[in-house]
Design a protein around this nucleic acid. Structure first.
Lengths: 345, 345
DNA sequence: CCCGGCATCCAAACCGCTTTGGATTTGATC
DNA sequence: GATCAAATCCAAAGCGGTTTGGATGCCGGG
């Protein structure tokens, strides 16, 4: 309630030493129950709360987790990133940790990590959006900054801790569903394939095709930022081509909406003339639920991934020597209104 | 490069006092050019960077700005919020500030602000999504924590610093455009009207109507979270009603996409049979540009608002006594493909 | 009655930086 | 040559906590 009371004043008011007061408040055993009660009461009355800078300095732990996002990554990951952050943030505040986010120019990313380490700004960081040729983990290992990867780093699955969904399997299953429905010509609108997650999705798609002796047709496969127009424009182009696909496998709800728009503009009906399966990150502003979801989808909550990644990182921070461990989340394959048997079947 | 070098070691290596080294690095004048050079060189060689906790403690400034987002606010503001954050984050890192984000349970919001103040976690905060009956600013004034509002607090426009767009004017102009095109029956799909921005938009809509002697028809006015299904479901319902509107004024691109979907499902054509004007926050993953934008819109970059709000806040933090000042951004009215003359005109 | 042990509590060092209040040197002035 | 101011540099005192290494008092046991 009152303004700035510090430990010293508080202990004066109580005729106790700072040591005792500090111990009482932090739950150490060498303090009598009665004293502890008195201290708690007075602290409450004076509205005492320890200055976090001082505490951090004294303990040597910054009680914060860093997220550095280069501007470009951010551009494309926008909504997914926030949802992850939201999940992670819940975990942090539950454990008394702060979340600090650094938005940096692309060529300052490495610098940002170094600063976090040398200036002791955070006890650990999360690596977002690992690329196919990723190297941030090596830097972090070199400067000894604990981290967890959201996604996986090819070639470093064992030595790093990560939380990822099973991208390959999800897209394999989705492709199989389309094949089972009789679709033979399936377009893939993937995310940027220099990102690890997009590679895995493509692999799943191709695996499913080749398991049935089909060749992927690169003329109906795309890779780009997952915007709405990306979905619409590419779908439009393909639908107007000589051999249009009868189904689309899409990497994001947002682009899938674009695909649906293109289908509508061509005078076709989604789920009847043309099928769509999209990945659904369960973004709160793009709900795809209800009795029958609009889109048939592979769904995996990125928010949940954020929560779990944060928990994992806090564990590592608490005990840096613990062996790396990871979490592999499975996406659900949920049937909605956007799929149906291939036409003319 | 090396690991933990601190001021003490650095000054020892240089045979200088900590005072001098500190001053040399922080650009104080009472240090010779030669000494400053030597210091800089050695600091660079040893990879010295000041421990931020220690510095914060010594200076009494936390060099951080806080953003507290209750989970519920977050749910609905999701993508817009991140875009704002991204803008603000750029400004912070440019000025050496950290951005700390607290995701809290709704009933802990006040607590979060108090903690930031008493534990000195941040030098200031940004108030997000002010409601029609807002009170956070009173709390912040009481605990003396500098802040800037993203949006406006009704009744406190003078005494607070804020960055907002001209919501009323934007929707007034949009409505006028529709009226000029001959539309007489215009639906409003607004955001949650307990939020200040949505109230203002509604006001603009109603002002434009009444200026032409028209009464708003509440049967085609809605207020809700701005999701995609919200747009689709409500548009669908209205289009199937006895007196369907010929135009929609929508508060968000995401919902507008839903409206377009509904129009398509009814076998109508957007921009011909039915017009749409939406507000466009210029979200990076929902570009509405190109030669002719998909949607006619009122556009105002929320990212830019974030940059400016952050600058304003940093100014206030630097000089808390400065009088409050604010920034009123104007939205552009941009004609795209989603509007046309009222049918049968 | 004395001693060891436990329960409590405290003075002081420390975390790593900034900043105050001099001390010392240098150089120009008269 | 003495004086004063400017130019440099430094020792030490914070900032507000945590933590180490004892003190002190009280108790039962030998």
């Amino acid at each position: 309630m009152s303004k700035g009371v510090n430990l010293k004043e508080l202990s004066n008011r109580l005729n106790l030493s700072q040591t005792t007061v500090s111990r009482a408040l932090n739950g150490y055993p060498e303090v009598s129950a009665e004293t502890r009660r008195r201290v708690a009461e007075m602290a409450d009355k004076l509205g005492y709360a320890p200055n976090s800078q001082a505490r951090r300095l004294a303990t040597g732990r910054s009680m914060a987790i860093g997220h550095v996002i280069p501007r470009s990554i951010h551009e494309m990951m926008n909504p997914i990133f926030l949802e992850f952050i939201a999940g992670a943030g819940e975990t942090y505040s539950k454990h008394g940790y702060d979340m600090i986010i650094s938005v940096v120019e692309d060529d300052h990313e490495e610098d940002a990590y170094r600063q976090i380490a040398t200036r002791k700004k955070a006890d650990g960081v999360i690596i977002h959006g690992p690329a196919a040729n990723e190297s941030r983990h090596e830097l972090l290992q070199a400067i000894n900054l604990p981290f967890v990867v959201h996604g996986r780093i090819p070639g470093a699955e064992q030595e790093t801790s990560w939380v990822d969904m099973n991208n390959r399997r999800a897209f394999e299953r989705a492709t199989n569903l389309l094949l089972d429905l009789g679709h033979k010509r399936i377009a893939l609108l993937n995310g940027l394939e220099h990102m690890d997650f997009a590679r895995r999705r493509r692999k799943g798609f191709e695996d499913a095709l080749s398991a049935r002796g089909l060749e992927p047709d690169t003329s109906i496969m795309r890779s780009s930022d997952m915007t709405e127009p990306y979905g619409c424009d590419n779908a439009m182009e393909m639908l107007k081509s000589e051999h249009p696909p009868t189904a689309f496998l899409v990497s994001s709800m947002i682009s899938a909406i674009g695909v649906a728009r293109a289908i509508g503009q061509c005078g076709l009906v989604t789920g009847k003339d043309i099928s769509i399966i999209t990945h659904d990150d369960a973004l709160s502003f793009l709900p795809n639920s209800g009795e029958v979801p609009i889109f048939t989808c592979t769904r995996s909550s990125v928010r949940y991934a954020g929560q779990r990644a944060a928990e994992l990182l806090l564990d590592i921070v608490a005990d840096p020597k613990r062996p790396s461990s990871s979490l592999h989340l499975d996406a659900e394959l949920i049937v909605g209104q956007s799929t149906g048997p291939a036409p003319g079947r």
